Every structure is written in C-alpha cells, then in structure tokens.
Amino acid sequence: MVCIRCQMVVKAELEKVGLPYVYVKIGEADIIGDVRTEQLEQLKIGLKKAGLLLMDNKKSVLVEKIKSAIIELVHYAEDQIKVNLSDYLSEKLNYDYTYLANLFSEVKGITIEKFYLTHKIERVKELIVYNELNLTEIAYKMHYSSVAHLSNQFKKFTGLTPTHFKNLKNKRRETLEDV
C-alpha cells in the first residue's frame, strides 16, 4: 500500500471478509485475532482484484516499509527530515542502513537513493503543476541546496528543465504505484 486510496481498499476488503483490525497504515495492517485460511484466501483475491498484493514474506514486508517511509516523507510530510535519509530510515525501521540498502537493492533492483530521488522529482513535478510555488520555494521546500541543484537533478531524471516541464501542458506524471 503506497497511498491513501490503497488504505481504504484494504480496510474495505478486511471488513468484507470479517477481519477486525486495530489499524491500517500505509504498508501494513494490524489484524485482531486469528485469521482462518478461507479468510486469508478471500482477502488475497479481493486485494488482487484491486491491484494490491498481500505480503507475508519478511523481506518483502521490510522493503514495503522502506518504500512507505520514503513515500510518506516525500509526499505527505509537511517538513522534510533534518538528518540523512540513511539515519532516518535506520531510526524509523530499527535496522542497520547497510542491511536495508542491500535488501532493497536485491528485491527492487534499484538503490534506496534512486527510489528516494525519483519520488522527490515526482513531488517536484506535482508542485510545478500546481503552480502555487516558484522554483526557489520548491527548492527550499524539497530541501535542495539551490535552484540550480534542483534544476540539474530534475533534468537528469526527466530530460527536461523545470521551466520546460512547466510549459508542457500534456506531460503526464507517474502514479505513485508506478514509481
């Protein structure tokens, strides 16, 4: 689960199969009591129809937690972190960053850093499209050292300058699930 809509789908599917839960957060759900095999199968089918997968492999679950932490940080947090991403993830997930980085690369085929930067660029695209902030404000909000740094990274990832991107009316953003 990487978005609010996904959380709503999971809650609905849990209720449909009669599984009470304590909470459903991005990337995880805490279910009350035991789960019967039939309920688990029904849940898997319902989630699959909605384009979601039930993760029960510990490595896959941890990778999803890494993704969720990054997505929450980039897309939903009001303030960006004041520490390194590696320190942030280690503290949040209670694992050594080297282990997290190696696991993530093994499972996803890209580095945590590339995943993080890709999401930052998608967030920058969103802010550009909203047209509420200028590039200086966007660079500050997204913790870039300068507009030039933002522009260089943006061009590296998209092939376009932020200004050129802003002028393209038909350029479509990636969905969070596709990043």
Results as ranks from 00 to 15, higher is better:
Asn84Trp: 04
Lys171Ile: 14
Leu73Phe: 12
Tyr88Cys: 08
Asp96Thr: 06
Lys156Ile: 05
Ile31Asn: 01
Ile45Ala: 10
Ile128Ala: 03
Gln39Tyr: 09
Glu28Lys: 00
Glu177Ile: 02
Leu176Asn: 00
Glu38Asp: 14
Thr118Cys: 09
Leu19Ser: 07
Glu13Val: 09
Val74Asp: 03
Val179Pro: 02
Lys108Asp: 04
Arg123His: 09
Lys166Tyr: 03
Val17Ser: 01
Val61Lys: 13
Ala139Glu: 05
Phe104Thr: 00
Asn170Asp: 15
Leu89Cys: 02
Glu41Thr: 15
Leu160Met: 14
Asp34Trp: 09
Phe115His: 06
Ala12Arg: 12
Gly27Gln: 02
Leu73Cys: 13
Asn57Leu: 05
Ser105Glu: 11
Ser146Trp: 10
Glu15Pro: 02
His119Tyr: 15
Tyr144Glu: 03
Glu113Arg: 12
Phe165Thr: 01
Thr161Gln: 05
Leu40Lys: 15
Leu14Glu: 02
Tyr97Pro: 01
Ala29His: 03
Val179Ser: 01
Val83Trp: 11
Glu15Asp: 15
Leu52Asp: 03
Leu40Glu: 15
Asp56Glu: 14
Lys120Val: 13
Ala101Ser: 15
Ala77Asp: 12
Leu117His: 04
Ser60Asp: 10
Ser86Arg: 02
Gly159Tyr: 08
Glu13Trp: 00
Ser86Glu: 13
Val61Met: 10
Val179Arg: 03
Arg123Leu: 15
Leu52Ser: 07
Lys92Ser: 13
Val129Arg: 15
Val24Lys: 00
Ile26Leu: 09
Thr111Arg: 10
Arg173Cys: 01
Pro162Gly: 01
Val124Thr: 12
Asp79Gly: 04
Leu73Lys: 01
Gly109Phe: 06
Thr118Asn: 07
Glu64Asp: 11
Ile71Asp: 02
Leu89Val: 03
Thr111Val: 08
Thr136His: 11
Ile110Met: 14
Val22Trp: 14
Lys25Glu: 11
Tyr76Ala: 03
Asn170Val: 13
Thr136Ile: 07
Val22Asn: 14
Asn131Lys: 10
Ile66Lys: 05
Asn57Ile: 04
Tyr76Arg: 14
Lys58Asn: 07
Asn167Met: 10
